[in-house]
Amino acid sequence: MLRYILKRLQALLISLVVASLVIFSAVEIVPGDPASFMLGINAQEDTIMALREQLGLNVSLTQRYFTWVTGMIQGDFGTSYTYRTPVSDMISERMVISLPLAIYALTLSTLIAFPAGIIAATRRGSVADVSVMGVTQLGVAIPNFWFAMLMVVVFAINLRWFSAGGFPGWDAGFFAAMKALTLPAIALALPQASILARVMRSSLLDTLSEDFIRTARAKGLTRRQTLWRHALRNALIPVLTIIGLQFAFLLAGGIIIEKVFFLPGLGQLIFQAITQRDLIVVESVVMLLVFAVILVNFTVDLAYGLADPRLRRSR
C-alpha cells in the first residue's frame, strides 16, 4: 500500500508541474496587455511602459514563471492588477464561502444519492425504483439555476424560512452562515445527487449480478447481509470517481448559483478577473482549482486503493 501511495504522489507532483506550465503559457498567449487595459485606450505609451515595469511584465517569460511558482509555494500569489491587493487575500476571502458550499453540497448529494441508489437497485422494478429513476431523470434535466429561483420564491419569498441571497459572513455565527448556504447547496446538490444516484444504482445492479454475490447467498447470508458485506464495497469504485469529479466542479462551477444567491464565491471572482484582464488573478485561481482537482483525484485514488486490494499492486 505504501508503494501505491508513493506512486500516486509521484503522479500528483508531475501533474502539478505540467498544469502550472500549461496555465502559465495559456494565460500568456491570451491577447490583451493588462497594463494597457488598466490605463484605458487613451493612455500614453510611456505610462504603459512604466506600469509594465512596475507590474513585472518586462522580464523574461521563464523568470516570470519561476517567480510565480516560487511565490505560490510560499503562499504569495502576487498582487491583483486591478485592485492592487494581494491575490491570496482575495482568494481566501472567496474560499471561505466556496469551500464550505462545495462540501455542503457534496455531503447533501451523497446523503441523498446513496440511499436512493441502494433502494432502487435492491428493489429493481418496484415503485421505489421507478420513482427514483423518474425523479433523478428530472433532477438531471432541470437547470439548477431555475430550480434555485423556484426555491427562492417558495422558501424565501413565500414561506420566509431563508433569506433570498447574500452571505452574512462566518462572524455572524456558524448556523447563520450555514443557513445562508443551505438553498444554494440544495440547488447545487440536486443534479449531482441525481447523477450519483443513477451511477450508484447501475453499479450496484452490476455487482449484485456477480458470481460472488451468489456465493455469499449460498453461504447462508441474507439479502441484506450480502448487500452490506459484499456488494457495496465492490460497487463503490465508479461512485467514488463521480464524487471526485463533482467536488472539483462544485468548487468553482457554481457561478450561476453564486449569481442567483448573490454569493461572492470563487466562480464570481474568476469571472470578474477574466473580464478585467486581471491575468495574475486568473492564473492563480485556475492554478488553485487545478491543485484542488488533482488533490481530490489523489484522495479518490487512495480511496480506490482502500476499497480494492487489486489496485494496490497493479499500478
Binding site: E210, D211, F212, R214, T215, A216, R217, A218, K219, G220, L221, T222, H230, R233, N234, A307, D308, P309, R310
Partner: peptide
C-alpha cells in the same frame, strides 16, 4: 438462510469470479 452454508454447501463453475475480490 440457516440451512445454506450450514447443512448444504455449494461449489460453482467459475472459480475466477466466485470469490469477493476485495476481501481476503
Amino acid at each position: 438462510c440457516a440451512i445454506r452454508g450450514n447443512d448444504v454447501g455449494m461449489v460453482f463453475q467459475e472459480p475466477m469470479t466466485a470469490l469477493n475480490p476485495v476481501k481476503n
